[in-house]
Design a protein around this nucleic acid. Structure first.
Length: 520
RNA sequence: GGCCCUAUCGUCUAUCGGCUAGGACAUCAGGUUCUCAUCCUGGUAAGAGGGGUUCGACUCCCCUUAGGGCUACCA
């Protein structure tokens, strides 16, 4: 099926209209993966033929974000050191710089009678469409200008009349049949194919012309794009045939969907890669997640977590699905948490600090601890992260679950200090005991999380034993619960020894003292 | 309206004629545990409907239904 004898050259050809859509990221990936898997080239071409949709900076942003996501192209348009450059022998790789090429090929079409001038006004086209829809017919151009004489065309051209150039579709051609790598044989009758505009009145080509010309000239072997292009593929095939060019392999990808199954849109949540990155999703998780929306290795392979390299190794176009896939943020959350758990502390630190430092709770903490050196500050952050790592869904969640790390004035109901149905007398003695216990620590011991935990658990057991142990219905909780609440003021939190480890000896003793005094 | 595509748990999916329909997320229950999170165990949950073909259909064919895409001098 795949032309193994032919050089594999696969392109991703986005329009720079703003931020990178997650659907586009997946399309990019589904082009990149087979290109790499088959040992071919992955090319980035920019399709900027719509001047009305020009967005300043969008092009640079597009290239930058693709690069940041790790989907690197071998050929095409690059953005190095703030300047646009092109790499490869098939350029330019931006369509607005290829206008003379399209002119040349459209002239060839004109000459062959496969295309024709059209001078119809917008109002004529609009009324034509209205009439057709009223008669419940499919809106289609009526070939009105096809019958224009050479003289008349010349005359109108010289008088600078506005015109477009249309594809001359032969209604009697019959079924246009093609074999889609994902959908199998697809056929659409030529009578249902419109005389598509190929060259707009502003001299720019439409997608259809530019795409076909460029794919041929750039020797693209596989055209892998969204399903929205499926119904215009016959136009493209007719163009390839008009030029006498060999067809590439086509593969039309299923769409990404909203929870209500409509096409993924901004109305129902974030759609840009940038937005997800800003929300604290890791690029690796995003790539992994999006890759699995419409593809999986199949045949009993239940692997869910993939690196980019593993995706390249295992990818197979024939295993791409036909049906659209709902973008389920819950599964992305799970996957992101998995990736966060796998990070080393240093990696987590590097990725999470930007999120933490922009938080008010952290800024306030920093104000209160201006005496801290950079080292002491980093040390504190790393301790926080060490404890939070298993509790994070997104990087932006850092600190949110454990506010008591950052504030020294705890407000809580004294009743919370008592574990279950404790009398309060025991709570007080537990706090008293914890106070002497923590005071006995050296700084060195305090900095060792494992040792701190071990000693703390021993102390809890010892305390439970003194109270009478299991026989008396007493346990570790009689010690650990009040200590934890004293340190956090919260009903839910990490273990007391973990909290103590983060906030330090001095602060721990201070909080225990304060709790103890509350009980008087 | 026309043309085209699609259809397995709520969601992502395995299955390429033999199925007690498997996995993951979510959800529920239990365990570990001072609480939370992590972790471990288990449960609920699916082949849109109707016809064929076949010894046998989730798998192949047809119809219906539902959803989606396209229907621009946008991509």
């Amino acid at each position: 099926m795949l032309h193994k004898d032919k050089e594999v050259r696969i392109r991703f050809a986005p329009s720079p209209t703003g931020q990178l859509h997650v659907g586009s990221l997946r399309t990019a990936l589904y082009n990149y993966l087979p290109a790499k898997k088959l040992g071919g080239s992955y090319i980035l071409r920019i399709e900027d033929t719509d001047r009305n949709r020009f967005v300043p900076g969008a092009l640079e942003n597009l290239i930058h974000i693709l690069d940041e996501m790790g989907v690197h192209h071998d050929e095409g348009l690059f953005f190095d050191n703030d300047t646009l450059t092109q790499k490869g022998n098939n350029g330019p790789y931006i369509q607005s710089q290829r206008l003379p090429i399209y002119k040349k090929y459209v002239a060839e079409l004109l000459e062959k009678g496969k295309a024709y001038y059209c001078f119809c006004s917008m109002t004529r086209l609009t009324t034509l469409r209205e009439e057709q829809t009223q008669k419940k017919m499919a809106p289609k151009y009526d070939k009105y200008c096809l019958s224009l004489s050479h003289e008349e065309i010349e005359e109108r051209l010289t008088s600078n009349e506005s015109y477009v150039i249309r594809l001359n579709v032969d209604e009697n051609y019959g079924e246009v049949i093609f074999n889609d790598l994902i959908r199998g044989q697809v056929s659409i009758h030529s009578k249902d194919v419109d005389d598509q505009v190929l060259m707009k009145s502003d001299g720019f080509p439409t997608y259809h012309l530019a795409n076909v010309v460029d794919d041929h000239l750039m020797r693209i072997s596989h055209v892998i794009r969204g399903e929205e292009w499926l119904s215009s593929t016959p136009k493209h095939i007719l163009l390839y045939e008009a030029f006498g060019w060999e067809l590439p392999q086509f593969a039309h990808l299923p769409l990404l969907l909203n929870p209500d199954k409509s096409k993924l849109s901004k109305r129902q949540g974030d759609v840009s890669v940038e937005a997800y990155l800003e929300k604290g999703y890791l690029k690796e998780a995003l790539i992994n997640f999006v890759a699995l929306l419409g593809w999986n290795p199949g045949s009993g392979n239940t692997q869910e977590i993939f690196t980019l390299d593993e995706l390249v190794q295992q990818f197979d176009i024939s295993k791409i699905h036909k049906a659209g896939a709902v973008f389920d943020i819950k599964k992305l959350d799970w996957m992101n948490a998995e990736y966060i758990k796998k990070l080393t502390l240093d990696e987590l630190y590097e990725k999470a600090v930007p999120f933490l430092t922009q938080k008010e709770l952290f800024q306030k903490w920093q104000m209160c601890h201006q005496e801290y050196t950079q080292n002491e500050r980093d040390n504190f952050i790393k301790r926080v992260l060490e404890i939070e790592q298993d509790r994070l869904t997104k990087l932006s969640d850092v600190g949110d679950h454990n506010l008591f790390f950052f504030t020294e004035t705890l407000t809580y109901d004294t009743a919370l200090l008592h574990w279950k149905k404790n009398t309060g007398v025991e709570t007080k003695s537990a706090l008293e005991r914890a106070l002497t216990f923590f005071t006995s620590f050296t700084d060195n011991e305090w900095n060792n999380r494992k040792a701190l935990e071990e000693k703390c658990m021993n102390e809890a057991d010892e305390y439970a034993r003194i109270l009478g142990g299991a026989e008396a219905g007493k346990g570790r909780g009689d010690f650990l619960w009040p200590v934890r609440v004293a340190l956090t003021g919260a009903e839910r939190s990490p273990s007391p020894f973990d909290v103590a480890f983060v906030i330090g000896k001095e602060q721990s003793i201070q909080r225990l003292t304060s709790a103890f005094e509350k009980l008087n």
